[in-house]
Amino acid sequence: MKLNSASLLCRDRVGGLIFLIFCLTYGYQTSLIPSYPGDAFAPFTARTLPWMLTSAGVLFSLLLIVMAQPEEKSDATLDFDWRLLITFILLMTAYGFGLTWVGFILATSLFLLAGFWVLGERRKSVLFGASFPFVTAFWLLLTKGLDIYLEPGYLFLSL
């Protein structure tokens, strides 16, 4: 097998390398677990399993780095819509903040509305029908039907 930058940095090898770094960091953190007097003579401590896992993790990641085969070139990854995914991740993060600040109904309705819009939905009946009324009905089911208390948003609490 010829070695070039593409085969050296194939997906599996990079994955193995990241996992190796992760395991080494985990191993370092394991050494920071506080120990009690007498632990040196105890057959099992809080560090025992983490040490075993660190060793196994390092071994497997090294094996993957050594045995990794360069993948055949494929255009599949080029077709992925990364922009859409990032938009959705940002939307979900905003939804997380929204749950605290503007409350369940408004945050969820706006999240769904924006989600439909971002994915290309333009029909007003769907955009508004599947967001606000649906979420209100769901909220009623939770609060009145299942008696779950949902805290109002901080913004409304401060008013």
């Binding site: 994955g15 395991c23 120990s35 896992l53 993957l64």
Partner: peptide
């Protein structure tokens, strides 16, 4: 090999929190 690595990762994630035997916080 990858499945083994994922199993190890799962086991690693399970060690996060208070250790049930001694009560020491880990990771």
């Amino acid at each position: 090999l990858k499945a083994w690595m994922m199993t190890i990762l799962g086991l690693i994630l399970a060690t996060v929190g208070i250790d049930k035997g001694i009560g020491v916080p880990r990771f």
